[in-house]
């Protein structure tokens, strides 16, 4: 019985630079485990401890996703082992390709009853990869999950939904996206980091995976998104009353108020 944590080794777009022609350069951005993923590691570790399951990390991406830094960062977060699928063509892959490769890798790993993910990737943030993967595995997907209990195959799932919460029971394999506020992620300690070096990483051969063929598409244009022109009038608030009066007067003069 295995629980897979599918995570992303990603650049923070906050640190990306966008050229005038719209080309995104993340070359200097810090890479790390995507901001919303550590919760999935923690929820997975707890469930694996409670059920005796093996916790396997899975990451799909460009060559950096299997760098020594990426492996250590993941393996120090409570995994028993790590599986990576890397290829230059998977760098910045779009949601459908990433989801399809993850589904093929989960099938290859075998004996998996549960896949956990974060609720969005920090870089692309499209929030569709878990459901693409689930669709191709033929499993249901549940998002915004705050708590898991029971055992994979007989799993109690609590999730946020509009206007409240819901409890679901899964009697088969399922893909679960963990909400960002499900747990306060634990920061790996020295013992975790030292232990990470002794854990096993398996690199799956991308070419040998049976990934579903995808519809071809091409990027035919790039641009910087047009931002609204703003007044940019910044006032020193050393005298708060005067500054506030000035801004309120300006808002009234322009009929915003």
């Amino acid at each position: 019985m295995k629980i897979v944590v599918a995570f992303k080794w990603a650049a923070n777009p906050q640190e990306a630079t966008v050229a005038a022609d719209g080309t995104v350069d993340v070359g200097r951005a810090t890479l790390g485990i995507s901001e919303y993923d550590p919760q999935a590691f923690d929820v997975g570790r707890r469930l694996a401890d409670a059920t005796g399951a093996e916790l396997v990390g899975l990451s799909v991406g460009g060559p950096a996703a299997t760098s020594s830094m990426a492996r250590k960062a993941a393996l120090s977060r409570g995994l028993d082992s790590l599986v990576t699928v890397t290829d230059p063509s998977l760098d910045d892959a779009a949601a459908t390709r990433t989801g399809a490769v993850l589904a093929a890798a989960v099938a290859q790993i075998g004996d998996v009853d549960l896949v956990l993910t974060g609720d969005a990737s920090v870089d692309l943030g499209v929030q569709l990869v878990p459901s693409v993967m689930a669709g191709l595995l033929g499993w249901p997907a549940v998002s915004q999950v705050t708590a898991l209990s029971g055992t994979p195959g007989d799993l109690r799932i609590e999730r946020n939904q509009e206007g409240g919460t819901q409890v679901l029971l899964a009697s088969g394999p399922v893909v679960v996206s963990i909400a960002a506020d499900a747990v306060e992620p634990r920061i790996p300690g020295m013992k975790d980091i030292l232990g990470a070096g002794r854990k096993q990483t398996t690199e799956l051969d991308y070419a040998a995976l049976s990934v579903e063929p995808l519809v071809a598409y091409a990027v035919v244009g790039r641009a910087r998104p047009e931002l609204k022109a703003r007044q940019g009038k910044v006032i020193d608030g050393a005298d708060p009353a005067a500054a506030a009066a000035e801004v309120v007067a300006a808002l009234r003069a322009t009929h915003v108020l």
Binding site: V126, P130, V132, G135, L136, A141, Q144, Q161, E212
Partner: peptide, 22 residues
């Protein structure tokens, strides 16, 4: 772009092998 609609959209994109754009 609601959570449940995203699940339907992602599963369909997987089935069709189609790009899913936001």
């Amino acid at each position: 772009s609601h959570p449940a609609e995203r699940v339907l959209a992602g599963a369909l994109a997987g089935r069709l092998g189609a790009p899913a754009l936001t």
